[in-house]
């Protein structure tokens, strides 16, 4: 007989509600991406969702887990949408399908499924793709001016991009600035129409839309402020301390408002399964990601750094957890480390 234990009442929260709210909060950002850049994001989102659900169902079936119960929780959907927002919009369709499959299979189920994965599944897939297919991952970004309409986008994605090259651009603003600043001065670089007064054309509203979604999550208490604030804070601080010279380094506004910064700060780094857990731990974890993003963006070879920064800090999360336990009521000090040294 199952013992009924207290409490006899619970709040209305469920995992699927949490996940679906997360998806809903992603929508403003996704819409902005579609509006300012490309229909490709929409197609990506649909492809990723379908693939994620199919792969999830298949693996659950193989692992003899209750399929519907886990499909309903919406975690696969979150992974799919995150990937759709992060992958290049004009990459061939199979890249999305492959990426989503990798995320669900390698990122999640090989570690034991929901709640067991030490790494963020979407970022695992992103990193795998970036390492395995660097060309496709860096050249299939859409230009801001939306030159390809929906039909053309479909053609690019499903028939291979080499035939229709309109609307393709190789470099994101972050990448472009870093490449150009070695030759030019800040003034000359910023002449490029992809930049605007604050941040970059298209990327600034996209990041603001993700910020909006993130604030909604904060307001609904689905995430806490610790990770976003420490992430953005450490990124900004490093940018001010080290890279204040706009003639040598990417400026602060670009760091914060272009690339995947806001997406990372509010949606990727805050993935609870792979993040640190205590409040102090979250602060350290977020600050670590922010610092790594800055370091990789400035001195690394990759244009954007979210995936690697997040994955590296995922590694560190258990260690952080062990040393940042909060002080318990009535205790003189927090218990640290792996052994109880109190007695």
């Amino acid at each position: 007989m199952m013992t009924l234990s207290s409490p006899h009442t619970t709040g209305s929260n469920t995992v699927s509600r949490l996940m679906l709210t997360l998806c809903a909060a992603l929508i403003p950002g996704l819409l902005a991406l579609i509006v300012f850049f490309s229909w490709g994001y929409l197609i990506n989102a649909i492809l990723a969702t379908v693939t994620a659900l199919a792969v999830e169902a298949l693996i659950l079936k193989i692992r003899k887990r209750p399929v519907l119960f886990f499909l309903k929780d919406g975690s696969a959907l979150v992974t799919a949408l995150l990937l759709a927002c992060a992958l290049p919009p004009l990459a061939p369709w199979w890249l999305i399908v492959l990426g989503t499959t990798l995320a669900i299979l390698f990122g999640k189920h090989l570690f034991g499924g929901l709640g067991q994965n030490p790494f963020n599944p979407a970022m695992v897939a992103y990193a795998l793709l970036l390492v395995s297919l660097p060309l496709l991952m860096t050249t299939r970004w859409a230009a801001v001016d939306q030159s390809a309409d929906f039909g053309q986008t479909v053609t690019i994605i499903f028939q291979g991009g080499q035939t229709v090259l309109d609307g393709l651009t190789g470099a994101t603003p972050l990448d472009d600035y870093k490449q150009s600043i070695s030759r030019l001065t800040a003034e000359d670089v910023l002449v490029n129409p992809i930049y605007q007064t604050i941040g970059a054309v298209g990327w600034t509203p996209v990041n603001l839309a993700f910020l909006l979604g993130g604030l909604v999550l904060l307001g609904l208490r689905i995430i806490t402020w610790h990770i976003p604030v420490s992430l953005l804070g450490s990124l900004a601080l490093l940018s001010i301390l080290i890279g204040s010279d706009a003639d040598a380094f990417v400026p602060l506004s670009l760091h914060l408002l272009s690339g995947s910064t806001m997406l990372a700060a509010f949606f990727i780094a805050t993935d609870p399964v792979s993040a640190a857990t205590s409040n102090r731990g979250k602060l350290i974890y977020g600050a670590g990601i922010g610092a790594l993003i800055y370091i990789i963006r400035t001195w690394g070879n990759y244009p954007d750094a979210t995936a690697f920064a997040v994955l590296l800090m995922n590694f560190a999360a258990p260690l952080i957890d062990h040393y940042t336990r909060p002080r318990v009521y009535g205790h003189k000090a927090a218990v640290k480390g792996y052994k109880n040294e109190q007695d």
């Binding site: 013992t3 234990s5 003899k64 887990r65 209750p66």
Partner: peptide, 12 residues
């Protein structure tokens, strides 16, 4: 003392 609860997933 109370038994360890059997979670849904452990029905497998």
């Amino acid at each position: 003392h109370q038994n360890r609860p059997l979670s849904n997933i452990e029905l497998i």
